[in-house]
């Protein structure tokens, strides 16, 4: 491999977050679903996949079930919040992620609570085990490419145009004979499915998960990525993921103690988020406003 072990690690994270960010953009940017609960789907996917794989399920099956399980929650969330709009919808979806977080923390018999789940096996597909990080990078790149390709096809298809139409004017779309509730739940399920997949990739890469990985600081990170890249822009989300995950790594050259490095990075993400909202709310490649 031509890149250092550390860079391999960063690239793996970038590809995982690309899936996560693009899937959030599908719901938030393309469909106009104000979902601040995306991080919960990510967590549900990570836990489902980890627990199933520990029980001995083959990795691919565990990963896909993780995605499907997350998308079931996506369906439930859309059904429950269908009547809400604007910041109330945003708060309800945020509340949903708090509920999931507190369940991960308290269903100790299943999730081991705050102790987290250690020893998550590395993926093994058709007898081949992904052992080294270099191999994992290739694996993650492959899954990322497939996921982004599928989401790209969806948003460019006539179905994707309906999603955008729903964001722009749902009433007008309904009098054209389209079931906008159907569109919303399909979009949310796809979005949650890929969030679940990326959660699975994360869990089996880090091999240890606990509830704090799926809480507000993660939410801030992916919101920052999507808003910096621009709503309704897959290209924007990809570029922004790479930049926002990679650039703070420069902080490592400052030789800060590791207990300070984490908070500095988090504060930086939050500062970028506020700055982009104030200076360029449409992000780098976005053409749509967040309403």
């Amino acid at each position: 491999m031509i890149i250092s072990a550390y860079q391999t690690h960063i690239f793996i994270l970038i590809f995982i977050y690309i899936i996560l960010a693009v899937s959030l953009n599908l719901a938030l940017g393309y469909t106009g679903l104000l979902n601040l609960g995306h991080v919960a789907f990510y967590g549900i996917g990570a836990y489902t996949s980890a627990l199933l794989a520990i029980e001995g399920m083959p990795y691919l099956a565990a990963m896909i079930i993780a995605g499907l399980f997350a998308s079931v929650f996506g369906y439930l969330l859309v059904t429950a919040t269908d009547r809400l709009k604007g910041d109330y919808l945003a708060m309800a979806t945020l509340g949903f992620s708090f509920v999931v977080y507190s369940l991960l923390l308290n269903l100790r018999e299943i999730t081991r609570g705050a102790m987290g789940i250690p020893g998550i096996p590395k993926p093994s597909i058709l007898g081949l085990t992904v052992r080294t990080n270099d191999q994992y990078l290739i694996f993650v790149l492959l899954i990322c490419a497939i996921s982004v390709f599928i989401m790209y096809r969806i948003v460019k298809s006539p179905f994707g145009k309906l999603l955008e139409a729903n964001r722009d004017n749902a009433v007008c779309l309904r009098v054209l004979g389209k079931n906008t509730f159907g569109l919303k739940y399909k979009a949310m399920m796809i979005s949650a499915f890929f969030a679940g997949i990326s959660g699975s990739l994360y869990a089996h890469y880090i091999t240890f998960i606990d509830p704090t990985s799926f809480y507000i600081s993660e939410l801030i990170l992916i919101l920052t990525i999507v808003i910096v890249g621009g709503l309704a822009s897959i290209k924007g989300s990809i570029v922004a993921t790479a930049v926002i995950i990679y650039v703070p790594e420069i902080l490592r050259t400052l030789d800060l103690p590791s207990s300070v490095l984490g908070p500095v990075r988090q504060a930086l993400y939050a500062a970028i988020l506020i700055a982009i909202l104030m200076l360029r709310p449409r992000g780098i490649f976005g053409k749509v406003d967040l309403e």
Partner: peptide, 10 residues
């Protein structure tokens, strides 16, 4: 709302 979550985290 998003900005305020950002301020909180910051």
């Amino acid at each position: 709302l998003i900005a305020s979550i950002g301020i909180l985290t910051f």
